[in-house]
Design a binder for these strands. Structure first.
Lengths: 155, 155
DNA sequence: GTAATTCCTCACCTTAAGTTGAGGTCAAGC
DNA sequence: GCTTGACCTCAACTTAAGGTGAGGAATTAC
């Protein structure tokens, strides 16, 4: 089951709803830092469940693993985070969410004035060259969320 | 340059801002259907520019290629689409956008009551089992937009 | 003390939406 | 009439976020 106050990966998976492989993957990406038992098995703290749950929610909102890592990096590594620790993160998180919503709303409004009228005729159309359109992503059009205000390097 | 009233792929790329390879890829996925010159080179109609531009916008809003294909399939294949043709599409499009915005807003509101308070303590938290959480996607957490009301099979 | 679970690592597979490059043709300018 | 640039196909590579399975070790249960 667990090792002295710690949780095995399977327990954590059951409690978070994540798959075991996903949790291992997150460890590889630096999102969680379980300790190891003498036999080499991962041992998680209870607070890691919270971390992992946060990852789940953040992903639903569209953050990438790297962005989430960036947010989580402000949490204390070896101490159970306090309410204040989480509060800081959730503020940053909320800001991102607001930005994403705002962008979608702007796009919708342009759509109303643009495709809505049937013009779609280039140059004239506000949607073709919106300030939001990231032209320099390198690999061409990707997912919407790639074009939305990326975390600008910091948390 | 062009072949008798038609446009070469490079021209289309220049006018839409898409890469040549992306346009070829879209043809492979059935989003455009250029004709061929006697020499085997693609020949596009002017109306294909509009189609391709639509693809660009739809992608920014987060639709997948398949969803876009589904929308475009209601356009006439070999006749230049009318304003009414585009109007129908844009209506469906707007609906999707509205749904996506609504979902993000619901998530934000839950966030305010949940992470905002620092609870994040599973079971109790509205964010862990939201009606919006797609549990059956098979491969685990993906991008947000994969969890948002997919095009339900039709256009 | 052994059997059944659970866990470990490592390598390869998956999807989406393309990009890149090789090897070879088409078309256009002079 | 040939050279240059644009185009062709096809296969392999890319990123993100994991999943899957092999082969083997650690724990737990009886």
């Amino acid at each position: 089951m667990a090792v002295q106050k710690g949780l095995a990966i399977g327990d954590v998976a059951a409690r978070t709803g994540l798959s075991v492989s996903a949790i291992r993957f997150y460890e590889g990406r630096g999102l969680v830092h379980p300790e190891r038992s003498s036999g080499g098995q991962r041992v998680f703290l209870r607070s890691d469940i919270r971390r992992l749950s946060f990852i789940l929610i953040a992903q639903q909102i569209g953050l990438t693993i790297e962005e989430i890592a960036s947010l989580l990096s402000s949490l204390p590594e070896r101490r159970t985070p306090t309410k204040a620790d989480w509060g800081r993160i959730s503020k940053a998180f909320r800001t991102m969410l607001d930005e994403r919503i705002a962008l979608m709303e702007r796009t919708r409004d342009k759509l109303d004035g643009c495709i809505g009228c049937g013009c779609l005729s280039l140059k004239k159309c506000a949607l073709y060259n919106p300030e939001d359109r990231a032209r320099s992503l390198g690999t061409g059009p990707r997912f919407l969320l790639e074009n939305i205000s990326r975390v600008s390097g910091d948390a």
